[in-house]
Design a protein around this nucleic acid. Structure first.
Lengths: 252, 252
DNA sequence: GGCGCCCGAATTGCATGCAGTTTGTGCCGC
DNA sequence: GCGGCACAAACTGCATGCAATTCGGGCGCC
């Protein structure tokens, strides 16, 4: 009924490279690594017990996924998407995940339903824990759904874009915890089980839209963008004390 | 009105790596490199005047895009997506490109309209030329549209998935030329200019759907899959002359 | 005290070398 | 002839070395 081919691994599982990728992805998603954080090749290599070659390759992968920014001759850093990029990412994500639930509606096996339910239960349990874990679990719920389509391409795109959205969350969103209403996850599962594709798509749309708007309330120039623009309004305070130290405070 | 940020380059433009990527992408899209074609690192390096390190990195990039298959300790090959993967790619492509035209409807500048028209004219002119060029131009039309959204992420995904679709075309489609009805391109432009988002989305959907179904008529086990399965029906011709030489004729 | 310059340390860009794996081919027994 | 084995060539996986560039701190000058 829901059978597909699915190689599942493209370049993913070159062993050591993918280990590093996974570790970094997770660190980023849990906000242990903030946007802008530096990722020197040999520190990475040393940390994971490999040479720079491998670390470099891993960074290349992550850059291709949009999680890391690679500038020539410069230390790689965790990507800091602009507000508009964040908005675009969410727009794409909405379309992709609507596709996911459309394909999934009424086709979930009992085992899959159980797996989803278990996951959401885990999300509930993690409520008391750190935000980091909640966010990770919420994201993984969406990726888990994508996996169930058995479409490797869809999995890849949903994963990527979900990770990117996480990144923006840590940039533009206040730490108001539990950004993903767990009940909405449950509602989506229910619609899928019932086989109501339209309902599931609508729920998913609403769910993601609310996450997006809750996070990206406004272009909030305060965070994440350019520092010089931020300070522009203050530039004409000529004769005052406490002048900002530009070169020192420039991003961490 | 249609202003956006847009860095445009992620890891793309590490110079030599991206040169190789572009060359290979183009070779693949023009079917000069068939699915399954071998891509040894040092041949590539020699051809482009760089060391294996660079060639390797380029292959990594392309693998991340799904154009190349990287198997451990084996020569990299041009990817050969399964029929189902091809179908999935087209499904995703439809959603993404609907998003593109939705964002673009009524927002095209005069210059952009001119550029699009010029491109379609070029497609028309290329009708007499080789199929390779037609296919490339048709694909580039879609990528050009994506570019006009000023959303780097959207550009990346549309490009990737469009390339993948090209790949499947060369696998599963007969060489019936002009796979992309040029008139449909013109119609889409017209709808965009008129600002009729719904119409443009519908046209784009129909356009891609027709391309997909024209190409992917059926699971066609004849091409692209497994050779042994293909030859199975012929296997019982026991006592005849001219037995197929398996190991020699294997692809290429 | 603040600002800019300069130089050493840190870091990347890239090629090459070596070890391990795969692939292809010729040879031998049947 | 035909199938299998073994060896050699080809190729990848990875680390390391060297040159070029950037980063950061200290020093002198204003």
């Amino acid at each position: 009924m829901a059978g597909r081919a699915g190689t599942g691994k493209t370049a993913e599982s070159t062993d050591r490279v993918s280990v590093i990728c996974r570790a970094l992805r997770r660190a980023i998603i849990e906000q242990a690594l903030e946007p802008g954080a530096k990722l020197p090749e040999d520190s990475l290599g040393e940390r994971f017990g490999v040479s720079r070659t491998i670390a470099r390759h891993a960074l290349g992968q992550l850059a291709a996924e949009g999680l890391v920014e690679l500038r020539r001759n410069r230390i790689a850093v965790v990507a800091t998407p602009s507000w508009q990029e964040a908005r675009d990412a969410f727009d794409i994500r909405i379309e992709l995940e609507r596709l996911v639930v459309r394909q999934l509606a009424g086709r979930l096996t009992k085992a899959q339903i159980a797996e989803l339910t278990a996951h959401v239960d885990a999300e509930d349990r993690a409520r008391d824990g750190t935000d980091a874990v909640s966010i990770r679990l919420a994201t993984e719920f969406h990726i888990l759904l994508a996996h169930m389509t058995n479409s490797p391409i869809l999995v890849r795109y949903v994963s990527e874009v979900a990770y990117r959205c996480c990144l923006t969350l840590s940039l533009y969103s206040r730490p108001h915890s539990s950004e993903c209403a767990i009940n909405e996850h449950r509602a989506i599962i229910a619609a899928l089980v019932k086989g109501d594709a339209a309902k599931a798509m609508e729920l998913m749309h609403g769910h993601l839209d609310s996450v997006a708007t809750r996070a990206l309330v406004a272009p909030t120039p305060q965070r994440g963008r350019d520092l010089l623009d931020i300070l522009a309004p203050y530039a004409d305070e000529t004769g005052s004390e406490r002048v900002v130290k530009l070169p020192k405070a420039a991003r961490r």
